[in-house]
Design a binder for these strands. Sequence first.
DNA 1: CTCCCTTCTTCCAACTCGTGAACTAAGCCG
DNA 2: CGGCTTAGTTCACGAGTTGGAAGAAGGGAG
Lengths: 394, 394
Amino acid sequence: MEVRRTTVRDMRRSNRSVILTGIYREGPLSRQELTVRTSLSAASVSNLVAELIAEGVVEEAGSVESEGGRPRVLLRVAPTFRYVVGAEVGETRVRVELFDLAMNVLARADHPIATPTPEEVVKHVLEGLSTVIAASGTQSEQVLGLGVAVAGVVEDNAIVDAQTLGWEAVPLAALLAEGTDIPVHVDNGANMLGQAEMWFGAGRGATDAVVALVGSGVGSALVAGGSSYRGARSSAGEWGHMTIMYGGRQCRCGALGCLEAYVGAEGVLDRYRLAGGTVDSDEETAFVELLESESELATTIVNDTIGYLAAGFANLVNLVNPERIVLGGWAGLLLGEKHLEELRTEVGKHALRRPYAQVSIVLCELGRDAVALGAATLPVVRLLRDGGAVPPPR
Amino acid sequence: MEVRRTTVRDMRRSNRSVILTGIYREGPLSRQELTVRTSLSAASVSNLVAELIAEGVVEEAGSVESEGGRPRVLLRVAPTFRYVVGAEVGETRVRVELFDLAMNVLARADHPIATPTPEEVVKHVLEGLSTVIAASGTQSEQVLGLGVAVAGVVEDNAIVDAQTLGWEAVPLAALLAEGTDIPVHVDNGANMLGQAEMWFGAGRGATDAVVALVGSGVGSALVAGGSSYRGARSSAGEWGHMTIMYGGRQCRCGALGCLEAYVGAEGVLDRYRLAGGTVDSDEETAFVELLESESELATTIVNDTIGYLAAGFANLVNLVNPERIVLGGWAGLLLGEKHLEELRTEVGKHALRRPYAQVSIVLCELGRDAVALGAATLPVVRLLRDGGAVPPPR
DNA sequence: CTCCCTTCTTCCAACTCGTGAACTAAGCCG
DNA sequence: CGGCTTAGTTCACGAGTTGGAAGAAGGGAG
């Protein structure tokens, strides 16, 4: 009995949420359009909008002529109503960015980091937070929340396992909360990048999609029915460790034949090397060189990679039946820019006809710096869910 | 802007639905327990329950002593309030069953079928419907709905594609509706079996699960967040055609290396045959013999099968992070009864540690005849969703 | 057998919300 | 400037939930 919708007050909150979400997600809208889309009465829309305007969440933004009558007044979420901060915790740096509600970057703070211990990271995130708040000239009370993206498994705002950082069971949100009054949200980096693409990039408009990220490793973010799917215990989306070659290459996760071992940049270059290719010491340089090389060996390796990746995509298509697959990650983008058409064709060879015909395969639009942007949407999601109700100051 | 929750009337409907669903799914409950679980006030629960009792949907069912005070009156959905019918359309027969709301079978009609043309099937389903209604002594008006399970892709109650039956674009629900006034629902057979297991079998209590079906072919039903996940266009769950051996055995779907080609009974026996084993002409007999044989070859084949199946399971574990995987299908059950422990161990070798630790792998409890039962839940789902409101007679 | 205690259930006044219909606002056209 | 069209607002009303108080139903003690 999970669903509990009760009092008449909840209804109002819910309606506020629907209206606010509509205004935020579907661009400036007039009250009139809102009544149509929400199937609320004009009276209620007016009423709720008036409330939202009075609270400063929504503002009027010019008008648009209608068909002969009174012009519609467009509404938008006031970009400067509150601000949100997103942080990306990487292996080598911490990046913190402050956005207004229209998701314009107002300030940024990067900090290189040598050994990413939890203490170091907490310190630099908090420093970055102060820095961006100061640099943007906003007040701390005006910051709605801080979203933090980490490359690891996150359950209930606490990090459970982050191998690349060497962390285990680190209550990151709690640690950060000790140093700030701003509400903290922590989530997985791949999910956050996916979230950014879904809201502002190639995923716009889709409700059932997968954002597939191919870098040195391979991951993905699943979106089902319009919201991120986390599975039973928030670790869904581990697409990289799907077996596509039973008994095949050893993956760093220990298993054999994982997709990552074949299409992750590391795996690709390793295959190239084993086949006799020479590989630059820098992974990205090497990968670019491989893609640009016209040698027969390089071509074979690249083609094989496309084939393996296509099988991985086909598995997604068959199992999840998404309407869109968004390919990203630095290696994924490099690969996709040159070979997207072949990739699509290859997916068709592995996937069932019907779901294949229903999926579109596209590239990420936001580049790889969108992680902090995605993280910054976490507080926004909450704002929208709560219908613009701002948590009381502590 | 999909979510639209509006008027105060919807709220009542929704609350009725919550209460009714609670009573139905969590056994007999007292009003008092309902107030706790629904977080509605005692007044509202009483109010709504009174309404439900007056309409005959719910009835009191004895009482239970509380701690010293007035005993609680237990409530249950009146089993005979309405009846539901489930039909299973197979390649060789049509089975129709009538249940009361407690899902006791009250009547059954089987009909062998030679060439499953849509006309034949429609005719026999409708005949079966009349038969079970007559046999159970109920009135046609008392039948809430007819759920039909078909082995094929179903979109919006219409069959899009059913290869095993040789159907394409058959508007089955519409065809059936021409012959009866009872509301008709059509859905995929694997999903229906999954639904039955989730409600009454090994899936009880789980909210994120996969029901994996291994028979001659291989399929699955995905359950996410408590309800069946259909994907963008209702064909999610095609687990059998996931590539687990890139470039491997040819599958009947045309692709290479599908799971089904390795663990579907047909694929298993084919592998056995190719390796020199002798195989009975009847598939099931042959499969049982293979499992019982102690020859080295047979053992190898079975062990390999477990390995492949484990890889398929591991892919599910990694990608969707379910809390439970329920293995069923005739071949799956035969395999599972003997080798479940090995299967679990093997899954551990292919899956990531964390999600593997969070999943439990169990066998179906309902046997393979539960398809009609699952189909019959379709009208029940609707009844619960609508809070016990019965569609007006036509 | 009666009274009291505990717990479950119902009744009632108060409050909140969305709706429809009438009404106002605002632009356009002739 | 008046009529027309479309957009947004006001208000009385019906519908629903709630908290608190009263009622109902047993069990136990004397």
